[in-house]
């Protein structure tokens, strides 16, 4: 058992060492705000070579170039919008992990809301149907129920 734990810990440790390797660039920033902006941009931008990784995660050469470009743009005083515009002008909106609402992606954003509306409508229809069916209990069943209630009341009086 101890042996198993040791192997797992070792495997995890080597994995984290790999991720340190991937971020082996040491950029220095004049203010902590700039560094934070840099880090959050790295998480929001997609590496185009390895599409399921952010720029922060990727070790591809293009990702290194783009990290350097973002670093240069931050240090020369560009704001986040200018950096995003620079990159989307060249690589398209695909580079953004969290694209803003626009005409192209509007269906994707609005479809869930539409689905909820349809769901609410269907459920309310079903609920109304339920109410209506409650109103039409056959007379014979109603009589049986009344008789049973009456019978039970008499029994309870006798006790």
């Amino acid at each position: 058992m101890m042996e198993m734990i040791r192997i797992v810990v070792l495997a995890l440790a080597s994995l984290s060492a790999l991720s340190i390797l991937a971020s082996d660039y040491s950029y220095t920033f004049t203010t902590p705000q700039r560094e934070m902006r840099y880090q959050s941009l790295m998480e929001e931008l997609r590496c185009l070579v390895c599409q399921n990784q952010s720029l922060a995660d990727s070790n591809a050469e293009l990702a290194q170039d783009l990290r350097k470009k973002v670093y240069d743009m931050i240090t020369t005083g560009n704001d986040d919008d200018q950096i995003m515009d620079f990159l989307t002008d060249r690589y398209g909106k695909f580079i953004l992990y969290d694209p803003k609402l626009n005409y192209e992606n509007a269906p994707l954003w609005l479809l869930p809301i539409l689905m909820i509306c349809i769901g609410v409508y269907v459920i309310s229809r079903l609920a109304k149907q339920g109410e209506r069916s409650e109103a039409v209990i056959p007379q014979s069943a109603q009589d049986d129920a009344d008789a049973l209630v009456k019978h039970l009341e008499e029994r309870s009086k006798q006790l």
């Binding site: 185009l48 599409q51 989307t88 002008d89 690589y91 909106k93 695909f94």
Partner: peptide
């Protein structure tokens, strides 16, 4: 092909 990214250029 998901690797083909439309170019804004």
């Amino acid at each position: 092909d998901p690797r083909l990214i439309p170019s804004p250029l």
